[in-house]
C-alpha cells in the first residue's frame, strides 16, 4: 500500500548527454514528494527510472527495501499517472479502472467492486459505464488517478498530470490530489515545473537543475532557507543586495524576497525611490530604485494601504536575509 524509496548514485545518459548526475535521494513511506525543476532538468527521466520505463546507466533503486533497479514496470509496486492520461478509449470507465486488477487475475465481480470504489473516491461513480471520450479533461484526470490507484501500488508516480488543465481546475485538482493521497496513504512522487503547485501539495520538494539535485526540503525550507542560488530563484522572486562597501570580496551574496522588504526591518537598505507599483489583490508589487551610488533596483511587495506615492523617496529595510554562495 505504501513504501519508502531510496535512490543511490543514479546516473543516466542519453548518448553523450548526461541527463542525471549522481542522484541520491530517499522518500519516506506515505510522503507526497514533488520533483520540481525547469524543463530538461531530468525530473521526468528520474520518474521514468522509478517506474521502470528506463534502466539507469548506473545506480540502484530500492522500493520498500527491495532492489528494483532491473525490474520491468509490470512487476514493480509502482503505477504511473501519465501526462496525457493514456486512458483506454474502447473501454468503459469501470473497465479502465479495473484493468490492472484484471491483469492480476482478479474475478470480474471483485474488480468491478474495487473499480466502483475507486470511481467513488474520485467522484465519478455515476459515469462508470461511460467511455473516456464523453468526459472533460478534469474528469479524465480523475479516472487516470483511480485506475493507477486501483491496484494499490506502494508508490504512485505522477508525470505532470495537471499540465493540460486550466489554472482554476488545476488548483482544485491539487487540493483533491492532496486529500486523496492523505486518504490512501500511498507514497506519491509528482513531477512539475510549477513551484506554486509544488508548494501547495508537497511534503517534500526536490528542486532539480541540469541533472542534479539542488535542494531538498519542505516548502518552507526551500523557500525560506534555500541551499543554492538556483533553488532560491526558482522558488520565487529574489532581490540581490549589493556587497557592503569596504568589506572584503567574498563568494557569497545576500538576497531578500520581495515580501521581506519594507519600511521597517533588520537591515537598512538605504534610501530608494518608488518608480511604479501594481495592485495584485493581496499586495502591491513595487519597483524601487536605490538613490545610492549603485542605483540598484528592487522589487518589494507592500501590504495594501501602505504604498508610498510614485516618485517618493523612502528608507527601505530588509529582513529574513538569505546568504547564498554564488555559482562561480
Amino acid at each position: 500500500m505504501t513504501a519508502d524509496v531510496s535512490l543511490k548514485s543514479i546516473q543516466h545518459s542519453f548518448g553523450t548527454f548526461q541527463a542525471l548526475k549522481d542522484i541520491n535521494l530517499t522518500f519516506d513511506a506515505g510522503e507526497f514528494v514533488v520533483l520540481l525543476g525547469p524543463s530538461g532538468c531530468g525530473k521526468s527521466t528520474l520518474l521514468a527510472i522509478l517506474g521502470g520505463f528506463l534502466t539507469p546507466t548506473s545506480g540502484h533503486i530500492k522500493i520498500g527495501g527491495q532492489d528494483m533497479s532491473r525490474v520491468p514496470p509490470k512487476d514493480r509496486p509502482t503505477t504511473t499517472m501519465f501526462q496525457d492520461y493514456a486512458l483506454f478509449p474502447h473501454m468503459s470507465l469501470r473497465k479502465n479502472v479495473g484493468f490492472g486488477l484484471q491483469m492480476r487475475g482478479q474475478s470480474k465481480k471483485e474488480r468491478n467492486r474495487r473499480a466502483d470504489e475507486m470511481l467513488e473516491l474520485v467522484g465519478l461513480l455515476d459515469k462508470a459505464n461511460h467511455k473516456p471520450h464523453e468526459l472533460s479533461g478534469g474528469q479524465r484526470q480523475r479516472v487516470a488517478l483511480a485506475r493507477a490507484l486501483a491496484v494499490s501500488p506502494d508508490v504512485l508516480l505522477l508525470d505532470e498530470p495537471l499540465g493540460a488543465l486550466d489554472l482554476k481546475l488545476r488548483r482544485q485538482m491539487q487540493d483533491e490530489l492532496k486529500a486523496i493521497q492523505r486518504e490512501v496513504g500511498t507514497t506519491f512522487v509528482h513531477v512539475t515545473h510549477d513551484q506554486e503547485e509544488a508548494m501547495s501539495i508537497a511534503d517534500k520538494i526536490i528542486v532539480m537543475n541540469q541533472g542534479s539535485v539542488e535542494d531538498v526540503g519542505t516548502a518552507e525550507d526551500v523557500y525560506m532557507r534555500p541551499k543554492t542560488l538556483f533553488s532560491a530563484n526558482f522558488m520565487g522572486e529574489l532581490n540581490t543586495l549589493p556587497p557592503t562597501q569596504g568589506e572584503p570580496a567574498t563568494n557569497t551574496v545576500n538576497c531578500v524576497r520581495p515580501e521581506n522588504i519594507g519600511q521597517a526591518g533588520d537591515v537598512s537598505m538605504g534610501q530608494a525611490v518608488l518608480e511604479n507599483s501594481a495592485f495584485f489583490g493581496t499586495y502591491h508589487r513595487c519597483h524601487f530604485r536605490s538613490t545610492g551610488n549603485d542605483k540598484t533596483s528592487y522589487i518589494a511587495n507592500f501590504p495594501v494601504g501602505t504604498v508610498p506615492q510614485v516618485g517618493q523617496e523612502i528608507p527601505l529595510f530588509a529582513s529574513n536575509i538569505i546568504t547564498l554562495e554564488t555559482d562561480t
Binding site: K74, T78, P89, G100, V151
Partner: peptide, 15 residues
C-alpha cells in the same frame, strides 16, 4: 496516443 495507452497497460501489469 496508442503508444501511451500500451505503456499504461504494461505499467498496470499486462504482458
Amino acid at each position: 496516443h496508442q503508444k501511451n495507452a500500451e505503456r499504461a497497460a504494461r505499467d498496470l501489469g499486462a504482458s
